[in-house]
């Protein structure tokens, strides 16, 4: 199947005082039609930056230094900003993290909802308004006529996130990027919003990239998972493969750190240490300093991708045939 979006060897850097931050260091992934890809990782691993790159929203001092983002046969990194605007909102749209700040406080819901239709699709205001009411009903907003006249501050957080989602859907894009769409919401609302994403996908066949650090969200939403660490994708596979058959020490540590209600142990299991400084990324594997199974080679040479099984690949030296013993040790460990 032809993928909808194909990211190849994407590198993104930020020029900062005193050096260059290499935020994304060569990532590859694809998304098929109607698929949900979850990009998981801790803060600062480059997951949000990658999604902004797909949207064409990387600003100075950030820069895509290498790689391509192929969407429907076009390389988005080569488009002019004017050409890119024809893609933004129409083909690819985005739901942001914090619905409290993602809406303009001085404009009505209506004017923010329909502006995409009016300016991008050249619809008349009347038609656009009808469309807006349809989408609002879709995302589960009652009294859409009333809501259109209201301002963001008059709505609750969950309601606002529904509006943001409606805004992202109104031009019927093929790809929706959701950057931590539930992080700012309380738990009951989180579940509702995730359900909403699922029903939207069923209805429209839209592809979704969901960026999150919440493994619960991943478990509910994702078809496939990409685990990011220090600007690279260290493991990628289907939800089952990553959750139950992961062989990357980082992914395993990440899954192990989740608090579980069915376990009696009262202590949290954090991953000790902190991610490397991306001003000067390590030569070898970025996880080496925190990895309990680190070998001498890990710190010196970047591990290559190795394929575990169909659709499941990781970047780890433990997959090397010479590391069989350490690999066995890892698989047997608690991690």
């Amino acid at each position: 199947m032809e993928p909808l979006l194909e990211v190849k060897q994407l590198h993104i850097q930020f020029q900062a005082h005193g050096g260059t931050v290499k935020a994304v260091r060569g990532i590859d992934f694809t998304i098929g039609k109607g698929e949900t890809l979850a990009i998981v990782g801790e803060s600062g691993c480059g997951k949000s930056v990658s999604s902004l790159a797909i949207m064409g929203l990387i600003d100075h001092p950030g820069k895509i230094t290498n790689g391509s983002i192929i969407f429907k046969g076009k390389d988005l990194t080569r488009l002019t900003s004017k050409e890119m605007r024809k893609v933004q909102g129409i083909d690819i749209s985005m739901v942001f993290q914090d619905p409290m700040t993602a809406l303009n406080p001085t404009l009505t819901i209506e004017s923010q909802l329909i502006e995409g239709l009016i300016h991008q699709k050249k619809m008349s205001k009347r038609v656009a308004k009808k469309e807006a009411i349809k989408v609002l009903e879709w995302v589960g907003i009652s009294n859409p006529h009333e809501r259109l006249k209201q301002y963001p501050h008059q709505l609750s957080g969950g309601m606002r996130q529904r509006i943001v989602i409606a805004m992202a859907l109104i031009c019927e894009p093929d790809l929706l990027i959701a950057d931590e769409p539930t992080t700012a919401l309380d738990v009951t609302i989180q579940a509702q919003i995730l359900d909403l994403f699922e029903s939207i996908q069923k209805r429209t066949g839209i592809s979704i990239v969901i960026i999150t650090h919440d493994l619960g969200v991943v478990a509910k939403m994702a078809d496939r998972i990409a685990v990011m660490y220090a600007g690279r994708i260290v493991e990628m596979g289907s939800k089952r493969q990553v959750f139950y058959h992961s062989e990357h020490p980082y992914t395993r540590a990440l899954l192990n750190s989740v608090v579980r209600l069915d376990q009696t142990s009262h202590s949290l299991k954090p991953i000790e240490g902190s991610p490397p400084d991306l001003f000067s990324p390590p030569k070898g594997c970025a996880f080496v300093d925190r990895c309990p199974f680190a070998m001498e080679v890990c710190g010196r040479v970047q591990p290559q991708k190795s394929r575990l099984r169909e659709g499941h690949q990781i970047e780890c030296w433990l997959q090397d045939t010479r590391a069989v013993a350490v690999r066995k040790e890892m698989l047997a460990s608690q991690l």
């Binding site: 949207m55 929203l57 914090d98 995409g116 300016h119 991008q120 943001v164 992202a168």
Partner: peptide, 13 residues
């Protein structure tokens, strides 16, 4: 502000 980024993500000029 975030809402400016939202507006940009809609492809407005």
């Amino acid at each position: 502000q975030d809402y400016i980024r939202t507006a940009r993500s809609k492809g407005l000029s």
